[in-house]
């Protein structure tokens, strides 16, 4: 394994981490969007608020890391993807702004009774971004991004059945993950009503995600038979593992189980992401650019790996500390209102 291969592993890892955190974050936005009228949706929204407030701005870091990692290690592939997939990627960035803007707005609008309109915008970003990121990834998988400055078709590279299905899969997967996380949170906070609410939603988004996933594979078979073969042969085991883990999650949730639910779901998503990684190896852009051909200077790759080591040593303890304090309930203040965080259901005036 060369240093460049190892950095490629980091890229897949960054995608995994972003799928766990970022996708779920957008999923929460999706549930917010669909929570319904002001009164009925209030309890749902306040649970979502309480759960995502502590970490929401940190999730983008994985996306940023992914971008930086690719342009540093695989500049040519990065520039090719960014120029050909300009439209979905720009839209994804705009969705992030939309979401950021409205998250802040919404918090306060809640008190002014304008919550719903702002929440709609907030939710829009939450669907737009994962869809566009998924569609862009779909375009790369389907081999529609050749190396070069805007060398691929600017529209069909991402607006084609495979891409669209991968985009929808990303949205559904995010909603599923978020629902699963929210089941656990509702349980922890002793809110059986909300637990049931998200249980039902986890079930139907799980089914949808499965359908989109199968659809994407079928469509890929027509689009790029070679890539399809790689998915089912090399990635077969991981695909199966992902499907089994997500099915277990599904069954557990259906029976009302809570413990281990989040781990199962995260494992399932990771297996799917890794199936992609394995299927696409050793290509950065199938089938025009390999890792070996697209890699930047080896010395830079080594430094990226070394820096990843530093990151592990510093970030992991800090994250554990944050997590422990959060789960112990030692953290409980809402910076956006500068009031103590309300418990779910408590929309103080």
């Amino acid at each position: 394994m060369t240093a460049a291969d190892a950095v490629a592993v980091l890229v897949v890892l960054a995608v995994t981490l972003y799928a766990w955190s970022g996708l779920a974050d957008y999923g929460a936005g999706f549930w917010d969007l669909t929570a319904g009228g002001r009164e009925g949706g209030g309890r749902v929204r306040s649970l979502i608020d309480a759960v995502i407030t502590p970490v929401w701005e940190a999730n983008h870091v994985w996306l940023v890391y992914l971008l930086v990692l690719t342009w540093t290690a695989f500049g040519t592939a990065f520039a090719s993807a960014m120029t050909t997939l300009y439209i979905p990627l720009m839209l994804a960035a705009l969705g992030i702004v939309l979401r950021g803007a409205n998250f802040a707005l919404r918090k306060d609008a809640a008190r002014a009774g304008r919550r719903h309109v702002a929440g709609m915008l907030f939710g829009l970003g939450a669907v737009l971004t994962p869809f566009c990121l998924g569609a862009a990834l779909g375009g790369i998988i389907a081999g529609r991004v050749p190396p070069g400055n805007a060398a691929g078709n600017e529209v069909t590279s991402w607006w084609n059945p495979t891409s669209i299905l991968v985009g929808l899969l990303a949205v559904a997967m995010g909603a599923f993950l978020a629902a699963v996380y929210l089941i656990a949170e509702a349980h922890r906070r002793g809110l059986p009503g909300l637990r049931e609410y998200f249980r039902r939603r986890a079930l139907w988004t799980g089914v949808l995600a499965l359908l989109f996933g199968i659809g994407a594979l079928v469509s890929l078979r027509g689009d790029s038979p070679q890539m399809f073969d790689r998915f089912v042969t090399r990635g077969g085991v991981l695909l199966a593992a992902g499907a089994v883990l997500l099915a277990l999650t599904f069954m557990r949730a259906a029976r009302g189980g809570v413990r281990g639910l989040r781990l199962l779901a995260a494992g399932g998503v990771a297996a799917l992401v890794w199936a992609w990684g394995v299927a696409q190896y050793p290509y950065l852009l199938p089938f025009g650019l390999t890792i070996a051909d697209g890699a930047g200077a080896p010395i830079t790759q080594k430094w990226m790996l070394a820096w990843f080591g530093v990151a592990l040593v510093t970030l992991v303890p800090a994250l554990i500390l944050l997590y422990v304090l959060d789960q112990r309930g030692e953290l409980g203040e809402d910076p956006l209102t500068s009031l103590e965080a309300g418990e779910p259901g408590d929309l103080r005036p």
Partner: peptide
């Protein structure tokens, strides 16, 4: 980024 990424990208990762 495409051409000089491996020269000046490291600080962004830091």
């Amino acid at each position: 980024t495409g051409k000089y990424g491996d020269v000046f990208g490291l600080p962004f990762a830091i």
